[in-house]
Design a protein around this nucleic acid. Structure first.
Lengths: 108, 108
DNA sequence: ATTATTAATCGTAATATTGCAATAAATAAA
DNA sequence: TTTATTTATTGCAATATTACGATTAATAAT
C-alpha cells in the first residue's frame, strides 16, 4: 500500500488535507515566511536564505505553486516568486472554515 | 536522504509544519470532523464511520494524540476519544498566527 | 559565438507514510 | 475460567517524500 484512499473522503476533507500537507514541511513554511516578509523573491535568494540545495528549493517551490499558494514570473534568467494573494486568501478561508468548527460536549 | 533537515529552521517553522503535517491526511481530517460533530467518540465508531481498517484508524488516532489535538479515555474495553480543547485552541492560535501574516507589495 | 548565470528537470539513495493482516493485551460477560 | 469484545502493536508491502549531484534549458553578457 502506501497509497491514500482519497475516494472514501469528502471533497472538502481531501482539499483541507492537501493544503495542510503542502504546509507540512518547514522548508515550505520558511519559503512562505520569506515571501511574505520581503517583496524580493528571486529563487536564488531563497536558496541562500534557507540553506538547502537549489534543486531542493526548486522542488518545494513547485509544490507551493501546484496548490496555488505562490506564483512565479520569469525575469531574464531569474524567476520572481511571490504569494498569489487571491489564491492564498481562498486557501486561508478554507482552512479557517475547518479551524472554526467548534467541538460540542466532550465525553472525556 | 529523505530526511527533513529540521535543524536549519526556526522552532516556530518546525512547529507549524508538524501540525500541518498531521492535518495533512484526509482520514485525520475526517476523524476530527467526526469528533467535532458528535460527542460519541469511541474508536470502533470511527472505524465504521470512516471505512478504513481498525489498525489504520488506530494509527491515525495515535498521530493526532501525539501532537495533542485529541485525547482518549479508557472506558471498559473501549476508548473514548475526543478533542483536547485546550491544546486544540493553542494549535489553532499557532496556525492563525501564521495564516494572518500579510504579504507586502508583490513583484509579480 | 562563447561564456556565465539562473532555474528546472532527471535520476537516485535514504527515509517516511499508508494500509492492513495477524497478533497481543486488556477488560467484560458468560 | 473461558469466551467475547475492543483497541493497540507488530510486521510488512506498496508508495511517497526529501534531498542532492548531474544535467539541461534558457536568457544575458562578453
Amino acid at each position: 500500500m502506501g497509497l491514500t484512499k482519497s475516494e472514501i473522503f469528502t471533497k472538502e476533507q481531501n482539499q483541507i488535507a492537501e493544503i495542510a500537507k503542502v504546509l507540512g514541511h518547514p522548508a515550505r513554511i520558511a519559503i512562505l515566511d520569506f515571501l511574505i516578509k520581503l517583496q524580493s523573491c528571486v529563487c536564488g535568494d531563497l536558496v541562500k536564505e534557507i540553506g538547502l540545495a537549489q534543486p531542493t528549493i526548486s522542488q518545494h517551490l513547485k509544490e507551493l505553486k501546484r496548490v496555488g499558494i505562490i506564483k512565479g514570473k520569469i525575469e531574464g534568467t531569474s524567476v520572481c516568486y511571490c504569494i498569489d494573494e487571491e489564491n492564498w486568501n481562498q486557501i486561508k478561508a478554507t482552512l479557517n472554515h475547518f479551524l472554526n468548527k467548534n467541538p460540542t460536549e466532550n465525553c472525556c
